[in-house]
Amino acid sequence: MQADVTLDTLGYFCPMPIILTSKKIKELALGQVLEVLSDDEGIKKDMPAWCETTGHQMVGLEEEQAKSGWIYKAFVKKTK
């Protein structure tokens, strides 16, 4: 999946990935897609929940096995 902006939150635990996402999304233009990298498994549930509450759109989630463990990529489209 293609993203306009990538936010690296690797190594950060809850609630930092969500807080960083909420700050970063402000820098995007409407319709742009933000890719959030995280190795905290909670992001799989937390990001859709954040999108539902804030009104942004979750457009994809990818998982990737790296040497250090799983890496999750959440794609959020700025819709408001």
């Binding site: 809850c14 609630p15 969500i18 807080i19 909420s22 954040w50 804030t54």
Partner: peptide, 11 residues
């Protein structure tokens, strides 16, 4: 953690 999480959700 709850406070910052909620604030990040726009609450």
């Amino acid at each position: 953690i709850i406070a910052t999480g909620a604030a990040a959700m726009g609450m």
